[in-house]
Design a protein around this nucleic acid. Structure first.
Lengths: 155, 155
DNA sequence: ATAATTAAAGGTCAATAATAGTCAAACCTG
DNA sequence: CAGGTTTGACTATTATTGACCTTTAATTAT
């Protein structure tokens, strides 16, 4: 039972695949197509097309305005993992952690089962402590797990 | 003379049987059907659909929220996994966690990479908090991860 | 030609809606 | 009375929207 946000995400991802990873859209036009408020588009972009997941979103206001979505292709698994390792050396929100896992999965660095194992580690249910500590632990855990994956890639 | 909780339990079990061990429900909708408070559903889930009794309960809050109940049928699961799941609902030391992981690996339930991913999660370096909290978190994390593995075995 | 106004575009943010979870108090039963 | 059951008040989370803001381009007025 997909909701509106999921449908818009799906549509945009299909577009991105069709156009080799880079698209340009009009916010109001897309909102018309899905019969929703224009700010719904912003919501989808801000929650589904994040840098953690490997996207760049550019935009321009005013006449001739547009929104461009670029899916970042990676040079190598090794390269991505090293970049992520630099990035996660700090507290992580659940959303950020999940975005990183999505990216790993999308690039076939981890498989389905590994994805699920990782996701569960970052869930609030597993880390049932206060918010600040949880985010801090997420940073630690992600770093540790990325190191394991990097090492296994080197083997 | 069955009480409300028993009736809800019965209803859910019939649903579970009808749908081959896995259902997705809406808390508020179910509460409406039984004319009870929504938190009554939580009570039933927390007392009748526990891991000890062979269930996994997942949920998501917010728009599009849901509750999913998965029954671990006896025939389709590994006995070791089930036993472990019941046992880990408590604080775990590093040694205990590692022992569990070793058993999973020795029984070929997890592979080398999964083993290493799991091990790193329970390492002191990842869970850099005081001892009591660490052991508590290890219990949570192990339970969560075992559930993932169990679910993947069911698929 | 320049300035002002209007149109066309995307962005922000709080309010609202829709969902599930927690917890203590009240109630019920044996 | 103890333990189990039910509930209501409140918290937490995710999704959607409308009012308003900001920016750029086009059009109109001077």
């Amino acid at each position: 039972m997909a909701n509106l946000s999921d449908e818009i995400e799906k549509y945009l991802n299909e577009l991105i695949n069709e156009y080799q990873g880079k698209i340009k859209i009009k916010r109001n036009k897309l909102a018309d197509e899905f019969d929703c408020a224009p700010s719904q588009i912003n919501y989808v972009l801000n929650t589904r097309f994040t840098s953690e997941k490997g996207y760049i979103v550019e935009s321009r206001r005013g006449g001739s305005g547009f929104i461009r979505i670029i899916k970042i292709s990676i040079e190598s698994t090794d390269d991505l993992l090293r970049k992520l390792l630099v990035r996660v050396d700090q507290p992580l929100s659940k959303r950020e952690a999940e975005g990183i896992i999505d990216r790993l999965y999308d690039n076939k660095i981890i498989n389905d089962r590994e994805k699920k194992l990782m996701e569960t580690v970052f869930h609030k249910k597993s880390l049932n402590v206060d918010r600040t500590l949880r985010d801090y632990l997420r940073g630690n855990l992600m770093k540790s797990m990325l190191e394991v994956i990097l090492k296994s890639e080197l083997d």
